[in-house]
């Protein structure tokens, strides 16, 4: 189970973070399967069936199989993590997630030695997702992490917010949260997790490789081609609030910068 003590110290310096309201977190979402407007997910995601829910875990694992959400939860220890959340669109929030470390799940199913990456896939339900009838992206939504990123103690699978079950517009019943990467890496409503040898496809990277890299680490020095990433608007801080500077790795540099030692973050963006 997830032991809070295993988390590096910096991540627990959470007292300075003031979480956004439930109202803000659940009504301002990017979940294009339900439409491209920020309020579309809150409006349309209610049609999504999340019970029963099965996650297929396959690839280079000791115990592949179809795991029910209940099976997974019976093995995991849920804890709260208050993380900064930085969208690639240059806005941010602070979210009090509940969930477990992805590493705990991966250790439970047993990662085999050849695995180098983890691939994730979101549910694709045309009957329940009005947005997927439009070719905004190549559905289903897929994402990927390098194995060391996936095993990092900051990387979690969220199943709740503010101690309540996570709502459908926020990625129920379980979603990834990688706090040092742009929000789109934190894939929602996961139905498949595969341990693989080669770098898996990531939806936004496939759609526009010039604008969205595989890593997509929050980096104020590497701009998105169409806007600056140096600053961000903190949602909920008021209409006349000033932008705040974006932090390297979204403020988690002490914990994660070493994962990228020797890499040119302008090239591997």
């Amino acid at each position: 189970g997830g032991i809070a003590g295993a988390v590096p110290k910096g991540a627990l310096a959470q007292e300075s973070l003031e979480p956004n309201t439930w109202e803000e977190i659940t009504n301002y979402c990017n979940y294009y399967e339900f439409g491209t407007g920020k309020e579309d997910p809150a409006r349309y995601a209610q049609a999504l069936t999340i019970d029963p829910w099965t996650v297929r875990i396959d690839g280079l694992v000791d115990k592949p199989g179809d795991y029910s959400f209940a099976d997974i939860m019976s093995q995991m220890t849920v804890e709260e993590r208050i993380y900064r959340f930085r969208c690639v669109e240059a806005w941010s929030m602070v979210i009090p997630w509940n969930g477990f470390e992805l590493a705990d799940l991966l250790n439970w199913v047993g990662v085999q030695s050849g695995a180098k990456y983890v691939a994730f896939e979101t549910a694709l339900r045309p009957d329940e997702m009005p947005g997927v009838s439009r070719p905004v992206l190549d559905w289903p939504y897929v994402e990927g992490l390098r194995l060391d990123e996936a095993m990092h103690p900051l990387t979690m699978m969220a199943t709740g917010i503010y101690g309540r079950d996570i709502l459908k517009q926020n990625g129920a019943p379980l979603r990834l949260v990688v706090p040092w990467k742009y929000g789109f890496k934190s894939i929602k409503s996961i139905v498949r997790i595969s341990l693989v040898e080669d770098e898996p496809p990531a939806s936004w990277n496939v759609a526009n490789p010039r604008e969205y890299g595989f890593y997509s680490n929050v980096n104020p020095e590497v701009d998105h081609p169409r806007w600056s990433q140096a600053t961000e608007r903190l949602i909920g801080s008021g209409i006349f609030a000033t932008r705040q500077p974006t932090l390297m790795f979204n403020g988690y540099a002490d914990e994660v910068a070493s994962l990228y030692d020797g890499m040119d973050l302008r090239i591997s963006f």
């Binding site: 009504n27 301002y28 920020k38 806005w91 949602i235 209409i239």
Partner: peptide, 14 residues
């Protein structure tokens, strides 16, 4: 926008 009727991010909506 100022009364909150334009949602969570009024500046962008305006």
């Amino acid at each position: 926008g100022l009364t909150g009727a334009l949602g969570i991010d009024p500046a962008k909506r305006i």
